[in-house]
Write a protein that binds this DNA or RNA. Structure first.
Lengths: 186, 186
DNA sequence: ATCATTGCAAAAGATTTGCAAGGTC
DNA sequence: GACCTTGCAAATCTTTTGCAATGAT
């Protein structure tokens, strides 16, 4: 069970500084507790129990920094009967708990829930390539400033936002076409 | 059938209309054809037929400028057996066609598809009140400029974007709390 | 007449829930 | 021991699909 301390990197982008290479590493985010410890804390505070299944899922979820959905997480689990197996309902239940605990963030893509690391990871937004379906992360303080300004104009108290810019990534633009999905829910 | 219904009301939001030029009130865009005519044209170009059901739905959809989901549209239809009735599958089929035809835009909120007028309506984004579940529209050219700049930095070809700022609207902030929904998919 | 479209029933896909058995504190 | 969790099966919710009957051109 890898208790890997979070050392994560995001691409930063600043529109104002135009000569900067468009993908400069932003830096690491230090966190006091591992996700496992942080979740334990949350569970205790709620009078919930830290079970083997929950620990297994936290390990799996934080073993890769990738966007994922419930199904792809389930695919990475051991099969029924194998040690470490977790049932589908429990996976869904635990994902909800991890979101509540602030360890994961959830959003929607093409009609299903997608999760990403939230704990110890800086706020960012996404470019979504319609062709290869990759999510490309970027960070923009300028956007956040604009967001807060527009909210202030509407006397709206911001809690969060979701921004996805859909299009074609450079890689795909320079390559041949690929099949499309059934629907365009963005 | 929805147990927890979205409250889908729109404020054609005119922002503090004083000094911010990019924040003009959302108005209509001049279009040559009515939605009905525009859809007819689309259908013909695709070798599809303009049926009573399709006309009825276009009328209903464009009779109010509101965000809506399939269920709330179905509720506004005459009952089974009444003239003007349209079955649930046909409603879904027609909504997809209206999106393809460019008359409606679709996005997701709390796990289901929400539609809004696209044809003859200017591009805009949304503030979403977590409490009353209202969607408040706003328009920002500054945001669009920023979007295109950030995309250019990533050599990303923009096709569209989806931005929803979630929080508490002024009205709700000045009132007492209301119950929350089951999930926070934004 | 041809062929798209409808309504019905049923299916499908994603996620949630009731409940008895088992695990954690 | 109390009571939270799990896995199973089944239910839900939303949306889609197969198909025979109906309707548009």
């Amino acid at each position: 069970m890898g208790t890997n301390r979070l050392v994560l990197v995001v691409m930063s982008s600043s529109v104002s500084r135009q000569s900067v290479p468009e993908e400069a590493p932003l830096g690491k985010v230090e966190v006091a507790l591992t996700p496992q410890e942080r979740f334990e804390e949350y569970l205790q505070s709620k009078g919930m129990r830290n079970t083997e299944q929950r620990r297994a899922l936290v390990d799996l979820v934080f073993s890769h920094h990738e966007h994922f959905d419930a199904d792809s997480l389930i695919e990475r689990l051991p099969r029924r009967g194998q040690p470490g197996f977790v049932s589908r309902p429990t996976v869904y239940r635990t994902l909800n708990e991890l979101v509540d605990a602030g360890l994961l963030r959830r959003f929607e893509l093409d009609g299903r829930a997608v999760y990403e690391h939230d704990y110890g990871y800086p706020q960012h937004d996404h470019l979504y390539c319609k062709q290869c379906r990759r999510l490309i992360e970027f960070r923009s303080d300028e956007f956040l400033r604009w967001r807060d300004a527009i909210a202030a104009q509407h006397k709206f108290r911001v809690l969060s936002h979701r921004l996805i810019i859909t299009g074609i990534c450079e890689q795909c633009r320079l390559t041949r076409k690929r099949p499309k999905r059934r629907q365009d829910l963005i």
